[in-house]
């Protein structure tokens, strides 16, 4: 097939679309669905800017993080996918977003979507993750601006909020 009709559920919304066989998930979400909160950067799995969560019932949280630049959209039929654009609920930011703002963990912002999704994933797995676990978890997400310290501080702050919320 050169094209495939698929259904994607992005941040809970259903999209019935036809995609080209050779389009990556990043391309489809950005160009066809216009959900440009998702960023495309290196396109080679190295920077993490394109990080999304995808449902996968083999994981403890029912979700896993992947680089959307390395997956073919046509192979994601029926999948539930979560991007940074879906974190805000009714005008209220997610604790991780809140913490990134408060700690100044965002400068140019290009890495932030992927960085925040990665942090959400780390903390959903373990809200009490310590500095070492956070830093190890953040491997695969590159930030050219902040120097990471503020990102780690933000993750720790958000972890406290998320642990208290449970």
């Amino acid at each position: 097939m050169k094209k495939r009709a698929i259904t994607l559920f992005i941040n809970g919304d259903e999209y019935n679309i036809t995609v080209d066989a050779d389009e990556t998930l990043t391309q489809v979400i950005r160009n066809q669905l216009n959900l440009t909160d998702l960023k495309h950067c290196c396109g080679r799995g190295e920077c993490g800017a394109c990080t999304v969560q995808v449902e996968d019932d083999r994981y403890p949280t029912g979700k896993k993080i992947i680089n959307s630049c390395l997956s073919l959209a046509a192979m994601m039929d029926g999948k539930r996918i979560y991007t940074v654009g879906g974190l805000e609920k009714g005008g209220t930011l997610h604790p991780v977003q809140e913490a990134f703002v408060e700690q100044g963990a965002v400068q140019c912002g290009f890495c932030s979507g992927g960085m925040i999704m990665k942090t959400v994933d780390i903390l959903e797995n373990n809200a009490k993750a310590g500095e070492a676990e956070i830093r190890e978890g953040l491997e695969g997400n590159i930030c050219r601006c902040t120097g990471y310290t503020k990102i780690v501080e933000a993750a720790k702050q958000a972890g406290k909020v998320m642990a208290a919320g449970k």
């Binding site: 097939m1 050169k2 066989a21 050779d22 396109g43 192979m75």
Partner: peptide, 11 residues
């Protein structure tokens, strides 16, 4: 906005 070359997908 092509990134990958054209191919036919078999699943």
């Amino acid at each position: 906005s092509r990134i990958l070359p054209e191919f036919e997908l078999l699943a």
